[in-house]
Structure formats: structure tokens, C-alpha cells
Amino acid sequence: MNVPAVRKRSEFWAGVVVFIVILAGLSAGTGWLYRLATDVEQTPFTEVVIAGERHYTTSKEVVDVLRQGVLGGFFTANADALRARVEGLPWVYSASIRREWPGTLHVFVVEEAPLAIWNESQLLNVHGDVFTAPVDDLKESLPALFGPEENVKEVLDYYQRFQTLLAQEGYVIRGFYLSERFATVLALDNGIELRLGRESQIERIQRFMDLLPVILAEQAEGELQRIEYIDLRYDTGLAVGWRETTTGE
């Protein structure tokens, strides 16, 4: 018997067996790693934490809108898509998304800050942007601004400047109307309508504040409530429109 030849064959087959064992081990290890990686990728969120001062948007609304599409897991969630869903809520101005291991989704919400009602059905925020949200949900009384859609910035600028001036005498604008020809009418909280026209509006408001005390001084007490409008569309002076009184008053 050729001993060296037998030894070589034995070593060969032993090597084959070892190789097969190694391959089997690698295959099993690869499968285990694949399953582990897959499980990690599919790690679901177990908690959603919602932060940010909110007056109109509930936590349930945020969670519900997040679940309207694919939420994903810790590694697979699309943060930009989730943020866009939250920002699609009517009262949300902006949102940010953050993940915390192992399964927490943090959502920070910044709500719209409404400044005025715009053309009855929409709202203006403090940045001068128009947004659509249920006006009936408002928790405070806001001025109503009206004007051409393309002139929203001008309307807001005029309103703020006029209100700053009128506030010096305690007047509050409740309605602001800008026509297509840029003629302006103000409705004050005391029930008086100021017709300013298109020109010299600041000067006309100042004239109103200067002359109203003079007008009232010549009238009986309580006559302020009878003034319906004051027309200031004159180079000097003004015209006063009085509400009709019923018989016996």
C-alpha cells in the first residue's frame, strides 16, 4: 500500500469537509446577519411625542395624519414626508421630526399665529401669509381685512400703520376695506365708519382724531353712538353721517 498516497487523499477529503463546514457556517451567519438587519430596519415606533405650544391642533390630529400613509420604522421612516403630512394640517405653520432610539418619534409643532381674517373665509398670520383654516375655530376676536388677493401685503401694511396711529387715541380697527382702486374704508370698534378715499390717508386719520372731540363738544351727550360714518375725502374738513333715530328718541 502506498502510504503517502493514502495520507494525501485523507488530507484532501479532510480539507473538503472543513471547507464545507466553513461554507455552512458562513451561510448560516450570513442568514442570521440578514435577519438581524431586516429586523432592525423594521423596528417600529412605539411612542410618538408631540411638543410645541398649540391652541388649535390636537395631539390626536397629529398622530392620525402621521398614520394616513406609511409610517415606517426607526431606520426606514421618511422624516421629510412625515413633516409634510403634519404641515398639511390647517393650523400648523411648521413642524420638525426627530427620532430617538429605540422607538420614539418626536414631533415639534409650530402653530399659525392668526392676526386677522382675510376676505371672510381665510386668515392672515403674523408673517403676512394667507392660510386656510376654520374661521369659526378662532379663540379671539380678530379684525376683518378685505382687499384684492394680489394686494394682501399692502392691506396688512396699511392696517398696521393706521392702527398704530389710531391707537394713540384708543381707537381700534375692526374692519379694513381696500377697493380695487385703492380707496380705503375703516370700521372702528365704536361703530364709526371712516371713509378715507385713496389719498393722504394718514393726514385724514389725523384730521378725524383732531376734529371728533370738537364735533362731540357741540352735540348732546351720547351722540357718539349716533355717528354712522365720517367722510374725510376732502382737502379740508369732513362730513358726518348720522344714524336715523326712531320716533320718540
Rank of each mutant, 00 (worst) to 15 (best):
L33E: 04
I22P: 00
T38P: 00
Y34E: 13
V40D: 03
G29Q: 08
Y34M: 12
W32E: 11
P44Q: 09
S27D: 03
V18W: 13
D39R: 14
E41Q: 14
G29S: 10
G25N: 04
G31M: 06
G31C: 01
I20D: 01
L33P: 00
A37D: 08
T30K: 04
Q42H: 12
A24P: 01
Y34T: 13
I20S: 09
L36H: 10
V40I: 15
E47N: 13
I20L: 15
Q42D: 10
T43D: 04
F45C: 05
E47D: 14
T46W: 02
A28V: 15
Y34W: 14
R35I: 07
F19M: 12
T46G: 13
V48H: 00
E41K: 10
L26W: 11
F45T: 02
F45G: 02
A37C: 06
V40T: 12
A24W: 14
R35S: 08
I20P: 01
L33S: 04
I20V: 15
T46D: 11
Y34K: 07
G25M: 08
P44G: 06
I20Y: 05
T46V: 10
S27V: 10
E47M: 08
F45D: 01
I22T: 09
V21W: 06
G29V: 06
V18L: 15
A28G: 06
L26H: 02
L36R: 14
G31W: 09
G29Y: 13
V40A: 13
T38I: 02
S27I: 07
I22N: 00
T38Y: 05
E47P: 02
R35Y: 06
I22R: 01
V40Q: 12
G31H: 05
G29F: 15
D39E: 12
F19L: 15
V21K: 00
I22Y: 04
L23A: 14
T46K: 09
E41D: 07
G25W: 09
P44W: 07
L33H: 02
V18F: 11
V48N: 00
A28H: 07
F19Q: 03
L26M: 13
F19N: 04
L26P: 00
R35N: 12
E47T: 12
W32C: 03
I22C: 06
L26C: 13
W32R: 09
